Simulated scan of single mutants.
Amino acid sequence: MRGLLQPPEVAGVGYDVHALGHEAQPLVVVDNVIDDPETLIALAEADPPFVAQPTDYYPGIRKPVSNRYPDQLLQKIEPILREVFGLPDQLEPQVRLSAFSLTTTPSQQLRPIQCVPHIDNHVAHQFAVVHYLCHEKFGGTSFYRHRSTGYETVTSDRLEHYFKVLKQEVMADDTVGRDYINGNTRLFERIARIQVRFNRALIYRSCSLHSGDISAAAGLSPNPRQGRLTLNSFIESQSSV
């Protein structure tokens, strides 16, 4: 991580901007992102329950947020998307998904794809927001460079090549075990790490290689007040003309 950049002025929102790795993609850190985070924790505790999604690679359980949070989040971060990430005026950001997430999968039950960094989307002008609603003991989020390709982002033009190379490497590397990635490996180099802070949000391009810093020793509780609770949102952009 190249360190802090001078953030542009956005009225009413205080944040820091980091440049990730060689590609210098922006990573925005917003502390105290909402005024009353306790309301969100109470909402996470209420029905309906969290469930595992068979088609989702997330190592745990989720449930959609059911209040005005997506609209409030978008209102707050849209100026950041335009000023920091250069989202063009003719593209309108929309929240595609906003869900509570609890990491609950034991290491030995992880699938191989859950043991390496991932991207959320390879399409341009798609963004991810991770909002921490948990204790600092749960680590944070790290960003990575794939050593052999040098990729820190996996865009549409890189997608086929990257996954072809990664599959070959994972099959050939006997050091890849069933565990959460949490730092440098033979295949990946960590280029940035942002620590959990309660009511902190991270904003980054969905094509950035990243992974949660998951520690089984910190606990993998399904209880929203005791586990690694986050609110994950995915922002897509569509033409307004």
Rank of each mutant, 00 (worst) to 15 (best):
V129C: 14
H135V: 06
I34G: 00
R82M: 05
P117G: 10
L97R: 07
V33E: 06
Y132I: 01
Y57P: 05
Y57A: 14
F100L: 02
V84G: 09
Q109N: 07
S66F: 02
L87M: 15
T55Y: 15
A99N: 09
D71Y: 07
T104G: 03
Q94E: 14
D89H: 12
E136W: 07
P112M: 04
R96A: 14
V116G: 02
I119M: 06
H125N: 15
V51G: 05
L97Y: 04
G21L: 10
L110V: 09
L73R: 04
H125Q: 12
D31V: 00
Q90I: 10
Q108R: 07
Y57L: 14
K76W: 02
V51R: 14
G21I: 08
T103P: 04
E92V: 12
E92H: 10
L110K: 10
R68C: 11
P106H: 09
T103D: 07
D47S: 13
R62W: 00
S98W: 12
V33R: 06
S66G: 03
E78T: 15
V29K: 04
R82I: 05
I61H: 03
P49L: 05
Q114R: 09
V95K: 05
N121M: 11
A124P: 11
Q114Y: 04
L73A: 09
P88F: 10
L133Q: 02
H135T: 12
K63L: 01
D47M: 09
V95G: 06
H122W: 08
Q114D: 02
H131F: 05
L74A: 02
Q72D: 13
